[in-house]
């Protein structure tokens, strides 16, 4: 229990690649065998959720980094401001 171990890195990557490939194949298979029941037409695009996850995540990071130019300041920003008041 107390033995020091590092995290299971190699097992993780094997599992991850397997999930990646299987999800791509299953999406096409189930899409064309009409297993899915979505509410909007755009959800029926092939690999819609894969693209949504990938680009959604990347866009989120990139837009936020862009916002960061204006809103990221020093760690003691408010402390400095309040020191200026004393």
């Amino acid at each position: 229990m107390n033995k020091l171990r590092t995290y299971p890195r190699s097992q993780f990557w094997k599992l991850y690649y397997a999930c990646l490939v299987v999800s791509l194949i299953l999406d096409l298979f189930w899409l064309y065998t009409h297993v899915f029941h979505y509410h909007f037409s755009f959800q029926y695009l092939p690999q819609f959720f894969a693209l949504f996850g990938l680009f959604g995540c990347m866009l989120l990071i990139l837009i936020a980094k862009g916002m960061g130019i204006f809103i990221v300041v020093d760690e003691d920003y408010y402390q400095k401001k309040s020191r200026g008041l004393n």
């Binding site: 299953l26 995540c57 990347m58």
Partner: peptide, 20 residues
């Protein structure tokens, strides 16, 4: 539909995270 779509979305979210 729901289980697959959300799992696939997360698998690819990880890919986006790993790139950036």
């Amino acid at each position: 539909t729901r289980v697959f779509s959300i799992t696939q979305m997360f698998v690819f979210t990880f890919l986006g995270f790993w790139f950036l």
